[in-house]
Design a protein around this nucleic acid. Structure first.
Lengths: 149, 149
DNA sequence: ATAATTGCAAATGCTTTGCTTGTGA
DNA sequence: TCACAAGCAAAGCATTTGCAATTAT
């Protein structure tokens, strides 16, 4: 079992599940626990297979179908976020209080999260200008490390 | 081989293909022609199946595999852009001179393109602040029509 | 001529689902 | 208890690919 002391910032996903009336099975507890760790690691956005790999270290019998079902459920309840960065499979992370965007290093695949008020305001303004209310949004910056020479 | 005179208004994707040394088959000519029309229709971002449906109206024998192969090739040569909006399949449009972003109506699926200098500048600034050079980026606003009451 | 492209169908990879057995509240 | 969840394997989709026949240059 992978134990890690919870970051003071970590959100208790189990509590969120209970509040939503979700039944807590052993499998869900394990998956939710693993996803909790994504909050304290801003660069970790595991895909279903990675979640499954970690999960079976704790309980060999957890099937990938259960991971798919759980992850979908958690997303529907806004407990985790799903991202479809360019490159096949979806990746997940626990929902945080403030919206953040992603910078993806096109060479390494490394992801950096960032928050910028100015851009958040601009998004709302743009939507409004076009006659819409903003429901959701995503901004992704695909970048290469700056050359230092 | 079938010849056809080019429309005076359309962006000439065929020329772009030739410049890149791509071999122009009848099938590619048809697909490229259809994609050319996405430039003058800012709300049309067809998926592979839609492109295929249109293509077989011109030539019954064009296979969907060819559409997939062509679309992939054109994307590699930066002649068209691929978008993965939330909702399954990829959608394509001809590359334009100026970068634009997308607003997606979550109810109707309708897409509106928009350009905003301020946000473009901000993107570069953000990447730079994090130590990166911006290679590519995408901003998508998922919205609902404003209630007017 | 001949290397690249097509069509077809089979294969892939991610994700979902039907069904039976197991289990949390 | 018993509605809901899990496990397994089969099914679904979008997309890719091997191969023989065809075609652009």
């Amino acid at each position: 079992m992978i134990k890690k002391s919870p970051s003071p910032f970590a959100v208790n996903l189990e509590t969120k599940c209970l509040k939503n009336g979700l039944r807590l099975t052993d499998q869900r507890r394990i998956i939710v626990k693993l996803l909790e760790e994504t909050v304290s690691d801003t660069k970790f956005h595991p895909d279903v297979d990675q979640i499954h790999q970690m999960a079976i270290k704790i309980d060999k019998k957890i099937s990938i179908a259960t991971v798919y079902r759980t992850v979908k459920l958690l997303e529907e309840y806004n407990i985790i976020d799903k991202h479809d960065f360019k490159a096949g499979k979806s990746r997940y992370e626990a929902v945080t209080e403030t919206h953040h965007d992603h910078l993806i290093d096109v060479n390494t695949g490394e992801i950096t999260e960032f928050v910028d008020d100015e851009i958040e305001k601009l998004k709302k303004k743009l939507a409004s200008k076009l006659g819409y209310d903003l429901i959701d949004h995503r901004l992704e910056l695909y970048c290469k490390k700056k050359k230092v020479d």
